[in-house]
C-alpha cells in the first residue's frame, strides 16, 4: 500500500461482486485492493493510506457500518462509499450522518460508481491537503513564544495594539514588536491572512 498513490479498497464478502468491482476499477485506471471481510481489511490497514473505501453494508461478523465507526475512531481520512443490495433509508441516513461519502445500491451503474470513487478520491485529496496545511500552520505556531501566542490570540480576535498592551500590562511598542514576530513566524503579510490561517487550523 503506497501512501502516495490513491488506492480503492473494496470490502465485500461476496466474491463475484468483489471481483467484478475490482476489475471495473482497475480497467478505469485505479489501483485496487480487495478484501473479503472487514477484519481482513483492518489487518492490512495503513492509517496513512490515501484513496477511498467501497464497503458492503451487510457482511457477516463486522458489518459495513461497524467498520465505518472503527475507521472514524482511528482518525482515518479515507472516504467511504457504501454499496448495498437492500439498504433501508434509516441505514443510509445513519451512514451519511457519520460521514459516508456516498451510498449506492446494487446493482450499481459503472458511471455512478466511478463518479463516486473519483469524488471520494478528490475528497480524500482535499482532506489530506487540508490536514497537511493544518500541520504546517501548527508547526509555525509551535515556533511562537508564549507571549507571542497571547498577542496572536488578541490580534485574531480583532483587538487593537493599545488594547492588547493594556490587557497584558505592557507598552504598545512591545506589543508591536511581538506582533511583527508573529507575522514573520507565521509567514503572513496581513492580519486578514493570519485570521484565515487560524480558521483553517481550527477546522
Amino acid at each position: 500500500m503506497s501512501a502516495f498513490e490513491a488506492t480503492v479498497f473494496v470490502v465485500d464478502d461476496y466474491a463475484p461482486v468483489r471481483n467484478a468491482i475490482s476489475r471495473l476499477l482497475r480497467t478505469a485506471g485505479f489501483v485496487v485492493a480487495a478484501f473479503a471481510s472487514a477484519d481482513a481489511f483492518l489487518a492490512q490497514y495503513d492509517p496513512g493510506a490515501c484513496g477511498c473505501v467501497i464497503l458492503d453494508l451487510s457482511m457477516p461478523a463486522v458489518s459495513g457500518l461497524e467498520l465505518q465507526e472503527i475507521l472514524a475512531k482511528s482518525g482515518s481520512l479515507l472516504p467511504i462509499i457504501f454499496l448495498t443490495a437492500h439498504g433501508s433509508i434509516p441505514m443510509s441516513v445513519h451512514a451519511m450522518k457519520r460521514g459516508a461519502s456516498d451510498f449506492l445500491t446494487k446493482p450499481v451503474n459503472d458511471e455512478d460508481l466511478l463518479a463516486a470513487v473519483r469524488a471520494a478520491i478528490e475528497k480524500n485529496r482535499d482532506l489530506r491537503s487540508q490536514q497537511a496545511e493544518r500541520s504546517e500552520i501548527r508547526a509555525r505556531l509551535a515556533t511562537l513564544t508564549p507571549r507571542e501566542r497571547e498577542v496572536l490570540e488578541y490580534v485574531v480576535a480583532g483587538k487593537l495594539n493599545k488594547q492588547i498592551a493594556a490587557t497584558l500590562g505592557t507598552v504598545e511598542q512591545t506589543v508591536k514588536v511581538h506582533r511583527a514576530h508573529v507575522m514573520q513566524k507565521m509567514k503572513v503579510s496581513s492580519v486578514a491572512e493570519l485570521v484565515r490561517l487560524m480558521q483553517r487550523c481550527q477546522n
Binding site: 461476496y14 461482486v17 467484478a20 451503474n109 459503472d110
Partner: peptide, 12 residues
C-alpha cells in the same frame, strides 16, 4: 448479488 456482479462485469 448475481445481477450486481453481472452488470458490473458486463459494463467493464
Amino acid at each position: 448479488l448475481p445481477l450486481s456482479a453481472i452488470l458490473t462485469n458486463a459494463q467493464t
